[in-house]
Amino acid sequence: MHIPDGLLSMPMIIITYAITIMGIVYSLRKLKNFPEDKIPLLGLFAAGVFAAQMVNFPIIGGVSGHLLGATLVAILLGPYAAILVMTAVLIIQTLLFGDGGITAMGANILNMGIVGASLGYATYSKLKDMNEVIAIGFASWLSVVVGATLTAIEIGLSKSLPFMKVLTLMIGYHVIIGIGEAILTLFIIKAVKTKLPEIGGVPA
């Protein structure tokens, strides 16, 4: 879901970069209270998200998707840590591996990082007392669908094209890709909590 160069208009590039930079600055301020001893773990999750995003899983119709991971990291390390993690992943992907355009990096961090970290985490927090599994699954699924919707809107407002078609296709694909996100997120959180019980409760 990395937007390449050439798809966003100049105003959209400026708006998405501005929102993303504000989000990152805010998160970095909030992270002053992040426990020092959990910083290596934060790095480990960033490395894991990068690796996971290299492995696309197939869905129907010759299309594939990959884990976003923002909601996953937000649930384990808090939303601000997740925004930092996704920013680091996207910077390396964009600047060194050519995933997504340099003009679209603000939008990509917003759609795949900030949305999942904030909305995904808020959704999880609201639902977790009801049922942990449903909370994790629904929050991570929703983060993909909303991220895809936002991606479609950003591209749709930038270009003259059949807007509803772009929106419908993007949502249609990502409703399914989101199921993969939910399954992987549930599986990884369970594995991490089993293998690393010290991760425990993390302050938001």
Partner: peptide, 26 residues
């Protein structure tokens, strides 16, 4: 086991004829 298929955004771009226009070579 990684899929080589286009991802959701790439598939959408193909269907509506959107093309990338790289300005930076990684």
């Amino acid at each position: 086991f990684a899929s080589e298929n286009p991802d959701g955004l790439e598939a959408t771009m193909e269907k509506v004829g959107l093309e990338e226009n790289p300005i930076y070579e990684a």
